[in-house]
Design a protein around this nucleic acid. Sequence first.
DNA 1: TATTGTTATACTCTATAACTATA
DNA 2: TATAGTTATAGAGTATAACAATA
Lengths: 178, 178
Amino acid sequence: MTVSRAAEKSSEKPADSAKGRKDAAEVQGQGAAGEALQLGELSEQLGYVLKRAQLKVFENFLRCMASLQLTPAQFSVLLLVEKNPGRNQTEIASTLGILRPNFVAMLDNLESRDLCARIRSTNDRRSHILVLTDKGKAVLARAKKLVATKHEARLNELLGQANREALIAMLAKVASEF
Amino acid sequence: MTVSRAAEKSSEKPADSAKGRKDAAEVQGQGAAGEALQLGELSEQLGYVLKRAQLKVFENFLRCMASLQLTPAQFSVLLLVEKNPGRNQTEIASTLGILRPNFVAMLDNLESRDLCARIRSTNDRRSHILVLTDKGKAVLARAKKLVATKHEARLNELLGQANREALIAMLAKVASEF
DNA sequence: TATTGTTATACTCTATAACTATA
DNA sequence: TATAGTTATAGAGTATAACAATA
């Protein structure tokens, strides 16, 4: 357990004062039983809607990719390696915001599925050059089609083409400049 | 380790074939050493920009809230309890997409800091009604001011008021309908 | 000495089963 | 029996230190 429950248990709750009990009595009648809660200002909070949207989009992505068993992170690795062949693990990982130690297991997975290969560099024998295998290229091509016809298409039908592009442009700006 | 490294080790890499070595030779010269990588299609991927934007926004939120030591999740709990007094843990947690077991430690934390209180319901003694303490109300008020003057203000200066509202509206739509 | 890939490790989030006390 | 809160636990994702091989 991260948050110490013992610390909480050992401190008397200040709400258990005379004033606290008065508040308790006041609140007992409130909160209309079966009704939906009001989000209030929460629905205007950037971080809140951003997080909820991200979870939904990832869920949809995973459903669209079920037949290929690719996560968003794995898809991003394949895309980046295809676009930048001849780069090493450190370069690919850091571009994606993945820490080098955490990239090892990811690559182990992709390599064990014969989607990607590590090649010892002849220039610098410390480096592993990353390349897509033929199977990796084929799977990525199929993945791109699924993304375009199922995932992006869903977003287009929800927002329209123009809004979809505007949304992505704004998110890219936030990601790079916020 | 989640992904079995043994499984990968036990399978010979298909890239270590005659064809694989030929590809390796081809790729060794590529990848201009010190230059930045090209994101390519990645910068158009909704999930990718969404995730990167979300991380940046949360980081900024945490910096703005450093003096109050409130995370985005904690802020959302305080906002929702203030807007919906008299509701129990299950209702507050599920509205926020937090699983009940995981909500316990969160509330322990907020209660130990005297921001929030659990009150045993008189109608149903299984339920804990949630309310903000006086300190919780005061801290939330200060938090709202910090969010408005630092966090939201930053987004406004980056996108402009109209675009900011459009962005949040689109994210809300994606979160609820995607 | 510095860097690449790697291991070990720890902390946070998230997810499920099962317990207790109430209903 | 069903539900609210809780505990224990397991799995992802993320973070840092340190090691071997190489530069």
